[in-house]
């Protein structure tokens, strides 16, 4: 008896709708598309990058954007010896808290480096832009040591 033909159909699980990211997150992502990084002033004037819609302490709505540098300083880091499949890099790299020039609050992103010994708290890093920017956090492909 011949094997019956197995019917199959490609299927991609996804959300077939778009979301509006609003005036704060949307502004940040739009600026990324243009290869600029902006933060926002919190109630106590600290510059928060990426920008938050509300101040976590006072709940005040925030709206004063500030452009910050694409370079900054490592505040803390974790060295990933064996990147996971979902991770943005497939070779060993660091996750880091990075305080960009002009910002008061560090952001979290990945840092490309040849070895763990090259990464230090206080080291200077620079954003590496994706070849094509689309208005997404991964428009910053990673940071690299300056």
């Amino acid at each position: 008896m011949s094997q019956p033909e197995i019917l199959n159909q490609a299927f991609e699980l996804g959300f077939t709708y778009t979301r509006s990211t609003g005036p704060v997150v949307g502004r940040f992502l739009t600026e990324l598309k243009n290869r600029r990084i902006v933060g926002i002033k919190a109630s106590d004037s600290r510059v928060v990058v990426p920008p938050m819609e509300y101040d976590p302490d006072t709940a005040e709505e925030l709206s004063e954007f500030v452009e910050v540098g694409e370079q900054g300083e490592i505040v803390s880091f974790a060295w990933v010896k064996e990147p996971r499949e979902a991770h943005p890099m497939d070779v060993p790299f660091a996750w880091a808290m990075i305080k960009l020039d002009g910002a008061d609050v560090p952001m979290i992103h990945c840092v490309a480096a040849a070895s763990e010994g090259d990464v230090k708290t206080g080291a200077r890093v620079r954003a590496v832009w994706a070849d094509e920017t689309i208005g997404f956090i991964t428009d910053i492909r990673c940071f690299e040591l300056v």
């Binding site: 990211t21 997150v25 992502l29 990426p50 974790a78 996971r84 979902a86 991770h87 943005p88 996750w95 952001m107 979290i108 992103h109 990945c110 997404f136 956090i137 991964t138």
Partner: peptide, 11 residues
């Protein structure tokens, strides 16, 4: 928007 798309793991 800022972290989940990077898949920053809990460890």
């Amino acid at each position: 928007y800022y972290l989940a798309p990077l898949w920053v793991d809990s460890i």
